[in-house]
Design a protein around this nucleic acid. Structure first.
Lengths: 222, 222
DNA sequence: CGCCTAGTTGAACAATATCAAAAATAGTGG
DNA sequence: CCACTATTTTTGATATTGTTCAACTAGGCG
């Protein structure tokens, strides 16, 4: 059976431009991995041999400091790419839940891109959009208060995970509080208090474990 | 006369892999711009038509928030690339001093890359290293104290501008305090106080306007 | 039910921001 | 070269925000 034909993220992936025939041929040789919670598909400092396209699940990108402090530089959702360049990975990418990825050897991509020059353009464009996301994150950390950070974060996951529960004002967080805190540059306690405060101001209706219900004052649009 | 033959940054640029003959032919058609202080070679939200390679000078990458707050997402030095993808620019790039850039139309690059497939690989690799730099910045803003931020910043410009004054413990800052503060996610006053504190701790010997002399306790190596 | 982990809350504290003013520096025209 | 102004940078006093450390609570699971 042809796995690719079921693929939700194909239009956003590098295989979008391939013909049905090519897809079939790839589908046979391709490595589809399922990744267990907590397992890494890339490790900080190690060489990257494969481009991974996330088909389902969520990943966190982790940077460790020498002294054990940890910063999360991003979260990756279905359709996102991990390992776009052969250079050593600048982060560790760990699954937050059982996930599915589609793995392309860079050697294979080089080969493939002779036929489909668009593949490399797509990688360049993806790279730029990753950079733009990183810059959003920089602005968030450099200029925003705790409340602004938490709201931005909720918008981020709200957008990324839309479709699972379309238009629902209820968001499921696939990561523990510590990960959110390490992403937002806050302590877990501050995050907790900020959730509480946002409940008071009507931005959130309920915050219960990993479920957050958005309130009146919250605008997903922004 | 052949301008490219004098180019300091060629080995790091996309023209590194071209033959002498090609360089000559490019050199004739190429746009070498001099950019006045304060002028932009890319504007947030506007489409990018050219890849700019910085030949000399310094640029700041600026993001404006709706309310007028400003975040600087990076500084660009000779050898760096601005505008690697055709997508709309995610920042404004402004010259901090009279600068020189070498400008390649993306159309031209596409054409060129048929002959030199390495060009796109180079762009992808550059993109990754930009992303890695952005992630360093994220860690800086998310996890570091004011002192750590200022020290990292000095290391950054120290490395980038080495060569002008090789091994000198004296660093010239091509940007005003406000830009440094907006880069580090601090207020100017805090930056100033942090400089003062670092002088006390022996990390800096003198801080006078745009010149900073490093002290004993400062390790450029890290 | 009791234990374990994840998350929340409280009170004191530290770091950075804010606002105001002083000092240093860079330009400008005589 | 100097005096004068405008701008940038530093310093001071105080307010705010987020951190720290400790205790407490809520769920999940044997």
């Amino acid at each position: 059976m042809n796995f690719c034909s079921l693929c939700d993220v194909r239009p956003q992936s590098i295989c979008a431009e391939m013909s049905e025939e090519e897809i079939r041929s790839i589908s046979r040789t391709m490595a589809h991995h399922s990744v267990k919670e907590g397992h890494a598909i890339a490790t900080e400092g190690e060489p990257v041999t494969h481009l991974n396209v996330i088909v389902s699940g969520t990943f966190r990108l982790v940077r460790m400091l020498e002294d054990g402090r940890r910063q999360i530089t991003g979260f990756m959702f279905p359709g996102d790419f991990v390992g776009m360049s052969r250079t050593d990975s600048s982060y560790t990418a760990e699954a937050l839940e059982p996930s599915l990825v589609c793995s392309f050897a860079h050697n294979f991509l080089d080969q493939m891109s002779e036929k489909h020059p668009g593949i490399k353009d797509r990688l360049i464009a993806r790279g730029s959009s990753e950079l733009a996301k990183a810059q959003d994150h920089i602005v968030l950390l450099g200029k925003n208060t705790a409340e602004e950070r938490v709201l931005s974060f909720l918008k981020l996951v709200g957008r990324a995970r839309r479709g699972e529960d379309r238009f629902s004002p209820r968001i499921y967080l696939s990561m523990p509080r510590q990960d959110i805190a390490d992403y937002l540059g806050l302590r877990m306690e501050t995050l907790s208090r900020t959730f509480a405060k946002l409940k008071k101001t009507g931005h959130l209706k309920t915050v219960s474990g990993r479920y957050v219900e958005l309130g009146e004052a919250f605008e997903l649009a922004g």
